[in-house]
Computed example of a mutant assay.
Amino acid sequence: MPELITPQGEHSISAILFDKDGTLLQFVSLWGSWGECFLGQFTRQLEQRGLKFPVQYLASLLGTVHDAEGRITDYDRNGPLAMGTMSDLYAILSWQGYLLGLSWAESKELVELCRQEADVMLERSRPVLPLPGLLRFLDDCIAKGIALAVVTADETAAAENHLRWLGIQHYFSAVIGTDQVERGKPFPDMALLACERLGVQPAGAAVIGDTNGDMRMAKAAGAAVAVGIAGAADISVRGLLPDADSLVQSYAELSIGRNTR
Rank of each mutant, 00 (worst) to 15 (best):
E106C: 07
P186E: 00
L99P: 09
L247G: 06
A244F: 03
E36Y: 11
E10V: 12
A15W: 09
G257F: 07
Q96E: 12
F18K: 04
G133W: 04
G222C: 13
L39N: 13
A203I: 13
P242F: 13
A252Q: 06
S103N: 03
D154H: 00
P54L: 09
G231E: 09
R261L: 11
M83Y: 04
L138S: 07
I146N: 06
E123F: 10
K108E: 10
S173V: 04
F38Q: 15
E155P: 00
A206R: 09
R49A: 13
K20C: 12
D154W: 02
F18C: 01
A191D: 00
I16S: 00
R197A: 10
G199C: 09
C195S: 11
Y90I: 13
G167C: 03
G32C: 08
E36L: 13
I256Q: 01
V65W: 08
D210M: 15
E47G: 14
E36N: 15
G231D: 06
R238N: 04
T6S: 05
E123D: 15
L46S: 14
V150G: 00
A205G: 02
L25T: 08
A118P: 12
D19K: 08
L100T: 04
K52M: 09
L193A: 07
A174M: 08
F18Q: 02
A220N: 08
G231V: 09
A147H: 04
T73I: 15
P54W: 05
L254Q: 11
T6A: 11
S12A: 09
Q56T: 04
L166T: 15
L163D: 00
A153I: 11
A223Y: 02
V128D: 02
T260N: 09
A226W: 01
H11M: 05
E182Q: 14
R136F: 06
W95G: 09
K219Y: 05
L62R: 14
S255C: 08
D140C: 03
G222D: 03
Q56Y: 04
I208A: 00
I72Y: 06
L254M: 07
F42D: 01
A157Y: 02
I256M: 03
E117T: 12
R183Q: 10
